[in-house]
Nucleic acid binder design. Structure first.
Lengths: 150, 150
DNA sequence: TCACGATTATTGTATATGCAACTATCGGCT
DNA sequence: AGCCGATAGTTGCATATACAATAATCGTGA
């Protein structure tokens, strides 16, 4: 392997933001998933339930805007949540729409998940440090600014 | 929904580290994937190729340690890379092992990917800011300390 | 009214991710 | 030699993720 190539590989290896962010994401996601496992819940699912709870009646496109998720992804992710009885699809005047809302069961699940979430949150905070958490807030805020809901 | 529940949902919504980190991860991953798309390459794949390049001869467990990836995940992720001819599995004395290495073609691919990577890296840096990048470095370093290769 | 572009969501396809269970092999100890 | 715990990867299963293409519906302008 020639020197230039080695140098490029070295640069990516040492500096690539995506590599580190993705690694951190895996580790942190596992912290939460481990804590939530006894409830049969994953943090990705808790995300969606919480957003839905806040919206009351949630339209897919709206949830995707908030979570920066592809609509096709949400479309599939909702199915297990619905199957578990945590969400229910609500009929709408506009026949294209598939708005959904949290069920009472889903609400109870969130309540039950709080202690596990708190423990994972504690571990994640320890990992990132207060500065890290603050930075994450900033970045998330910037993303919201970048994509204003018209 | 009673007040306590609303309050809990609010807390998660406003403070959950996993929610934000996962969101950021999606956005940033998409930056790199968009830039790399013309090459038929995803940043997750570039990760693996680069680690492999650095290792020379890469053992799966070793790559997983570095990337904090489940071995079963890597086992599957390697297959498309192999199919594209970017990696090749190398026979080993230990019949359990499945070490692999970068092919010449894989090396050329990395070279071709550099400009796209640089552009995505620029965008990601802009998004996170220099502090954000520094924090990410710190967190990644901490993860390496947490799991020393004994 | 009805034709057509815009909107909303789903489906086909491919990859990423991890847990649990399994297979194959290795190495040491008897 | 032969058993047995340890090690290295793979496979079954479920979920997450996104792009491209499609389906269904809506609303508007002719």
């Amino acid at each position: 392997m020639d020197k230039a190539t080695t140098s490029n590989i070295d640069t990516i290896s040492r500096t690539c933001i995506a590599v580190r962010l993705r690694l951190l994401n895996r580790v942190v996601t596992n912290l939460y998933d481990d804590a939530l496992r006894p409830l049969g819940l994953k943090v990705s699912q808790l995300n969606i339930l919480v957003v839905t709870a806040r919206l009351g009646l949630a339209r897919p496109a709206q949830v995707c805007e908030i979570l920066q998720l592809d609509v096709s992804t949400l479309s599939r992710n909702v199915k297990p949540l619905q199957a578990h009885g945590w969400l229910e699809v609500v009929p709408d005047e506009d026949a294209r729409a598939q708005p959904f809302r949290l069920t009472a069961q889903g609400e109870r699940l969130i309540e039950k998940a709080i202690p596990a979430w708190e423990e994972a949150q504690r571990q994640a905070t320890e990992l990132l440090g207060n500065e890290g958490v603050a930075l994450l807030d900033q970045a998330a805020k910037k993303l919201r600014q970048t994509r204003p809901e018209a």
